[in-house]
Design a protein around this nucleic acid. Structure first.
Lengths: 292, 292
DNA sequence: GTAGCTCATGAGGTTTTCCTATGAGTGCGC
DNA sequence: GCGCACTCATAGGAAAACCTCATGAGCTAC
């Protein structure tokens, strides 16, 4: 025979109120029900918890001590449960998010601001990583959500499209191409280009697009950091081939961008989550903000 | 709707075993029962605790975290309950005992040794005090048990007789009264007496006995400590009127004792407890040893 | 002495809980 | 490619736990 939370609550209430009747009132049960709970607990523990007399009950030392111990445990329990319910209501919680550096710098801040506005209690732990690593982090469960590239069908990952990022031609001030509505690949191939470094996925994307068009790429400059690349273009050293969403472009005056008509220069940025793994309420909230 | 210990145990077992079926096995319930417990807990908390698939379940981060918190609480609870049960079985526990100094020095050590032999885990906090204070301590609940004098009918205290302590005549070596079987009050009144100090209850007892016999008491010496009194008698300075149970008499060679035929020189030593207050199991054990 | 308080008791009914049997989805081995 | 084995989910009926209402019994106080 075992004890239950009801019995434990009955004990603490009875010790606190000093009366079975008042304890029953507090717990919204009838007095006989409470009497039975206490008796069951006494039998289960093999301990007399109260001395009964016709003019009331008085806790035994054991009852007093147990009530104090139980009260502490009940408080602990209440705290844990309240925390869980709070998280369920999106009033608190933590999401671990793995995200591409470019997105972290551009799209993410606004999204986090919207999340904070809607759910001020939710904290987001952001980890920026290259596309491959974003996927790995989500697969390993180290990140609940990831923002990365569409990488084709992965059995373990589920992708939700967020937006498309395309490489655009970035023209130095006064460049003749500014007269065009768009800049074709052949024209770009013939011009000196400012590209990102050969290790980056942006560069790989560019290489593939040119190769598919039967063109060779002619990098005049390679920069690791976006801000360097932008500065080089601005100095007139070449045409940049850079992601349209890069914040560095938006804040750089005098630079004009033109689309490049190639489907291969587009990247679908997607939200990644583990397939079959439900999200925590906090992650759910973040996903909604990102997808909405 | 609220949560229960069963549900909490179901969660921790399921997270630990990684399977509803194995958890059910461990908790000795059927698998559907466990499934329902988990679901009820999820509904109560508003949190998804497991991701279900046809090939098994996997705890969500929330489930994992809650299971860990709950496990700690369950361990706490288990410890408290185990402690209570241990005390109920007299395998541990504490008794606060108030006791007359004379009894503490004489009867008590043997009793505590017997208690230790029977119940090694029980600790006894001994507090020696004069009779009036013994009664007060028990009344106030500061001592669960008391060893004191029979003090007539007290509404709050219950008395169980332990033994009788009578004042006996303690004769110096070679005293002529050694030829007698007993020493009457008149003979004592005529002799120089070694008594305890006027504040002590022993002295009061002696005064009353003499007064009732129409005799005046003639203290030659008054000693506060029993050992002093014994030493005075041994030095031949008078006849002692001391409690028969005093250990100092038993270990003093050459001293002989003779009963004094007066019912007023007897004291009933009783075990005191609060009326209507049940004893802790540890106190129960001590009472048994004392009364047995 | 009676009214008012306490907790205990007993009967009856309701709610909860559980178990057995079965279903349904997935992975594995033949 | 097809069952077989394993997982958890579902459903219906039975058992157990629980609660409430009504009442009893012991004590206190007026």
């Amino acid at each position: 025979m075992s004890y239950s939370l009801r019995q434990i609550r009955a004990l603490t209430a009875a010790v606190e109120t000093g009366s079975f009747g008042r304890a029953a009132l507090r717990l919204h049960v009838s007095q006989p029900a409470l009497t039975l709970q206490i008796r069951a607990l006494e039998e289960s523990l093999g301990v007399t918890l109260f001395d009964r007399s016709a003019r009331g009950v008085r806790p035994t030392p054991a009852g007093q001590a147990l009530a104090a111990s139980f009260q502490r445990i009940l408080d602990d329990l209440e705290t844990v449960v309240a925390g869980a319910r709070e998280q369920a209501q999106r009033r608190s919680g933590v999401v671990h998010l793995a995200v591409l550096p470019s997105v972290a710098a551009n799209l993410l801040p606004g999204a986090l601001a919207r999340l904070r506005a809607a759910h001020p209690g939710i904290r987001v732990m952001v980890r920026d990583a290259v596309a491959r690593r974003v996927a790995a982090l989500v697969k390993a469960g180290e990140a609940e959500l990831g923002i990365g590239h569409a990488a084709g069908p992965e059995p373990e990952l589920e992708e939700t499209p967020l937006f498309e990022d395309s490489l655009v031609a970035v023209l130095p001030p006064g460049h003749p191409f500014a007269a065009l509505k768009e800049v074709g690949l052949p024209a770009l191939a013939a011009a000196p280009l400012v590209l990102t470094d050969p290790e980056s996925s942006l560069r790989t994307l560019a290489e593939h697009a040119f190769a598919a068009a039967g063109l060779a790429i002619r990098p005049a400059y390679e920069a690791t950091y976006m801000s360097t690349a932008v500065a080089l273009v601005r100095a007139g050293l070449g045409i940049g081939l850079l992601p349209a969403t890069a914040v560095e472009l938006r804040v750089a005056p005098l630079l004009e961008t033109r689309p490049v008509p190639s489907p291969l220069l587009r990247r679908r940025i997607v939200l990644l989550r583990r397939r079959g793994a439900s999200l925590s309420p906090a992650a759910e909230a973040l996903a909604e903000v990102l997808e909405g």
